[in-house]
Design a protein around this nucleic acid. Sequence first.
RNA 1: GGGCGAUUAGCUCAGUUGGCUAGAGCACCUCGUUUACACCGAGGGGGUCGUAGGUUCGACUCCUACAUCGCCCACCA
Length: 875
Amino acid sequence: MKEIEKAYEAKQFEDSIYKQWEESGAFTPKVDQDKPSFTISMPPPNATGTLHLGHASMLAIQDIMIRYKRMQGYSALWLPGTDHAGIATQNRVEKNLAEEGKSRHDLGRKDFLKEVDKFVDTSRNTIKSQIRKMGSSCDWTRERFTLDEGLSKAVRTMFTKMYKDGLIYKGDRIVNWCPRCSSTLADDEVEYKEVKDKLYWLKYGPFTLATTRPETKLGDTAVAVHPDDARYKEMIGKKYMIPGVLGDFEITVVADKEVDPEFGSGAVKVTPAHSFTDFEIAKRHGIKSKSVIDEEGKMKDNCGKYAGMTTTECRKEIVKDMEKMGLMEKIEDYDHKLSICYRCKTTIEPLISKQWFVAVDKPVIEHEGKMKTIKERSIEVVRNGEIEIIPERFNKTYFNWMENLHDWCISRQIWYGHQIPVWYCSDCDEEIVAEDAPSKCTKCDSKNLKQDPDTLDTWFSSGLWTFSTLGWPEETEDLKYFHPTSVLETGYDILFFWIARMIVMTTYGINQIPFEKVYLHGLIRTRDGQKMSKSKPETCIDPLDMIKQYGTDALRLSMVIGATPGNDLRLYEEKIAGYRNFVNKIWNASRFSLMNVEDEHLETEFDPKKHIVSKADKWIITKLQYLIKDTTENMEKFHFSEAGTKIYNFTWGELCDWYVELSKGEHLNPHVLVYVLKNLLKLLHPFIPFVTEVLWKNFKEDKMLIEADWPEFDKELLFNTEVEEMELLHQIISDIRSARAEHAVEPVKQVHAVIYAGKHKDFLEEKREPLMRMARIGELEIFEKGEKLDRAIALLTPHYEVYLPLHELIDPDKEKKRLEKELDNLKGFEKTLSGKLSNDGFLNSAPPEVVDKEKRRLKETQESLKKIEGELAHF
RNA sequence: GGGCGAUUAGCUCAGUUGGCUAGAGCACCUCGUUUACACCGAGGGGGUCGUAGGUUCGACUCCUACAUCGCCCACCA
């Protein structure tokens, strides 16, 4: 007999349980050649972030996978870490400085970075403790940070390797420039915003042409037309002087297929320095470029009176001036998409600048005797199934993105991050690339060396994540044993940002795939499908707040059940509360059991031959076996929602509603109760680790649940005959309860029941006790068969007939109506079935077992029909 | 412009290679202090499965269009 609290209070237990797990070493797998390994690299949250639902759901899903595999006997490693998130973090610190009226330039690079480190150190601890709150069973002894010693070394090593392979080059190229961040952005770091803008029609020498950016006219060097456009055929290749606000300037007319003759006037002004398309056109035709916008988004000195203005100011002025000069034909309203910075939403200025790039179309990887580009190799590993993406439909998205990949700009003009490992000699201009800072110039021995001031794109280091965290470039035991990792689990929103780059960097860098499977989860949304956004706090659910109120287990379940890979999930508080109720239900099922169990029951090992006694035992044991089978299969297929739902239904609908209820009478069998419960706790543990571990402590086991063995399906423990019988019992009880309610028989009232049970007579006789108790029967008579009773409720099925002779309590009209309704129902069913069975097509084409089933059902329906018709004849 | 997803009860969603008269949770209605749990129990109402065709003996499930909503990608100035 145990004393257990009436309700489960999560916050009383969670922190101490987590501590016990961590201290037990269960999170820290060993390199063990006798065991298979299972590895997940945790997508590193930003070091300065705080836990949001996105993290919470990823942690829940990954923890489920890891705990499951750990219980199955794998050496299961879940490697945690944090990302320095260069631009994001630097922005945060700069913002803090701005409040003190300072800029990063006031501090200088060295002191500014000290400031950032200080900030990161404290906020990293915040996110780490929040990861623990979710119950994440990750190995903190192997925790990494993208900017720590080892990873920085990995970054420099990879950069050097790529440089030597000619994969990294420096070039003047047009880039996405964020004037606010003062940095370049990769193509996929650019977002688009719908804006209502103007389309300006300019009188442009012999042309009229449309543009959204009249200020870039100052940088125009060409006009492009479609090669087949008859209107401009004569002009191709010629040069024209164009009148402008700063005087005439010269342009060349070029023909290019990119130009859409349908749009505007069919002629495009070309500003190679400030437009991606124009840059490409100019390159194709050998046109020079003229740069007129600087890195602060202001007009350059070569812009006369407009010099120093922002592009927006300049646009206003220049439009005014053009109108004065009669150069403006008309201005139309125009909707288009503006490129903005994904971090700060500032308008992007495309401009030409000297940057570092990764060449994606250069064949450098030797694979099966062929030289392949990183692009080709990255596509290949997914196409040939070495890497499997779940759900599969994202393959298409991945291929499409990869195929259209341009050279990747990896330099960023910020201070926080991995500084590019390139040094320039001030004396001889030599460029030295090295893993470690050189002490002197390799060419002229000069000690006047200056490191490239730029840092690397954050995704460069995260691209190495799966192997750099395991010790690369050292050939560590961990690396050999745990890599390639098993599953990479993350949101589909960073398929390109991160997953694609890991595939690129790993297949090239160490000639391995980074992971075997990619599991993509969806976004968590509000109840009405909105994105939760920080700018609208009322739409956000704070996971930490939910944990406080409902417990981590409830939160985890609410994010896993109902979620399918790649699809978004709507989450709301009632849902979490619902799963808190479930957690309490399992708590109370255990509480009931432990109240009815002695120490000896807990101490003896379960012996099916000795301990399985009743048909009820056989029924629940069989159901448990099927549950074990289903759950294992679903876990293997990553169907976590399905697995969770089935365990939920078993726990509530079968164990609690029936087996525990049966146990309140003469069927109490502590051995089976303990056996079922223990197995159930194991199955539930990956989903709701805390409550299951707390309960486990009552079962006198040496090991903690986290280290227990996953249950195995045992087909010796299937008792299908008993299952059928027990389900008949459930049916009778439910039927009687239903009939009582319909006739408004008070729940406390004990009724008289007569059952004609046919071949089930002995079985029901055996189950007399629960039948009477659970259906509230005072006097029960069971016969094989007998006469119909008058003034009684009649429950008529092919397997049994139940009469409840309630005499004066029965309203004959009501009973007649009830029977008629059922009759209608059955007649409809009969029609469907006999229709099917008189159809030759069905009989010939359907599989025999389906035909048999329908035949059986028709027979049963007809039997019921006959009985009810007979009954109705008496009214 | 291209691609993808969703559309099932008032709400949120299941429905696994086509085969019970379509299920669950929440909400709603009726009843309830029976040996864990009111974070509970018993019972109940509620759906022409977005629309229109097609394939099939049989379609929520497969195919084709369309509609609505949402997402992603793309250099239309």
